[in-house]
Structure formats: structure tokens, C-alpha cells
């Protein structure tokens, strides 16, 4: 394969000069250049690695005080800012409670919570196995039963 390649490729022919003459390197390097090259290259590689690492640390150093300050400002705003109607919503109340308080909170009856204005009917989700249609039919039946009772009482 290599022999075929060598046979087919054109040879550089310059009259009066052998291939060895033509291939002689005309460039020079400073004395001892190659002896010191490996440690110099390794130093460059190491310093590049250190630069990358120090850049990462600097980012943290720059960002951390900013993040801390922002968190502090947010906390002050959150605790001191007056709300529009001077009432707390359900989520805010729950968020500010300890676990013990949450346990006590869970023992309250829904009606009590509604009565103290700590929750609204929108905050209470009713879990039900009935479909919407079944609930409507049930309520219509109830209403019909009540009407029937009234009719009976009035003897209509």
C-alpha cells in the first residue's frame, strides 16, 4: 500500500540537489529550547487549570454577598410590609406556623376556622367520590324533599 503510494506520488526534483539536501531544516531554535519545553508546557497547563478554578471561586465570592443581601431585604420586606387590607391569607398563616402550631391547627373544625376568618370557603377543598352531576342531582333531590315537606305541612 505504502509502496504503491510512493510509486504514484510525484517526486520533488531540483537539479543538482538530493532529497537529503532539500529536506535539511533551515530553521533554528534557541539553545536548549526542547530540553526546557516539557516543564514550560506543563506550567502553562497548570496555570490555565488554576485560572479556571479561581474564576469559579471568584464567581461565588461575587455572588454570595449579593444573594445574602437580597435574601435579607426580602425577609425584612416580607415581615414588615403592610398588606392591602391588613389581613393575612391562609397560605401566609400556614407558612409562618411551627410544626406544633400546625398540629393544633389541624385539630380545629373547619367551621371554627371560617368563623375566625382564617380561611375562606375557597381555601377549603372538598374531596368527594361523587361526580359534579351526582352532587347536583342530590342537591335537587334535597330541595325537592324540602319542598315536599313544606307542601305537606301546608297541606297543598
Amino acid at each position: 500500500m505504502e509502496n504503491t503510494e510512493q510509486h504514484n506520488e510525484p517526486k520533488l526534483n531540483i537539479e543538482g540537489f538530493s532529497e537529503a539536501d532539500l529536506k535539511r531544516n533551515p530553521f533554528k531554535t534557541p539553545e536548549g529550547y526542547f530540553e526546557n519545553l516539557t516543564p514550560r508546557v506543563m506550567d502553562s497547563v497548570r496555570s490555565t487549570e488554576e485560572k479556571v478554578e479561581s474564576t469559579e471561586i471568584n464567581w461565588w465570592r461575587v455572588l454570595m454577598p449579593g444573594i445574602g443581601f437580597s435574601a435579607m431585604v426580602f425577609a425584612v420586606w416580607f415581615l414588615s410590609a403592610p398588606t392591602g387590607n391588613n389581613t393575612l391569607n391562609f397560605d401566609q398563616v400556614v407558612a409562618s406556623m411551627s410544626l406544633e402550631e400546625l398540629d393544633q391547627f389541624a385539630e380545629f373544625e373547619t367551621e371554627d376556622l371560617l368563623a375566625y376568618g382564617l380561611v375562606t370557603s375557597d381555601d377549603i377543598e372538598i374531596e368527594s367520590d361523587f361526580s359534579e352531576e351526582e352532587l347536583i342531582n342530590y342537591l335537587l333531590d334535597e330541595e325537592e324533599m324540602e319542598l315536599n315537606t313544606i307542601y305537606e305541612e301546608l297541606d297543598i
Binding site: D21, L22, R24, N25, P26, T29
Partner: peptide, 14 residues
């Protein structure tokens, strides 16, 4: 280039 050496033919080739 001060560090260039060699005979005329190598320079001509370059």
C-alpha cells in the same frame, strides 16, 4: 529571521 540558517537552496525552498 535571525535564527534561520542553511544553504541557499533550503531558503529558496521555503
Amino acid at each position: 529571521a535571525p535564527e534561520l540558517s542553511g544553504d541557499a537552496i533550503q531558503l529558496k525552498l521555503q
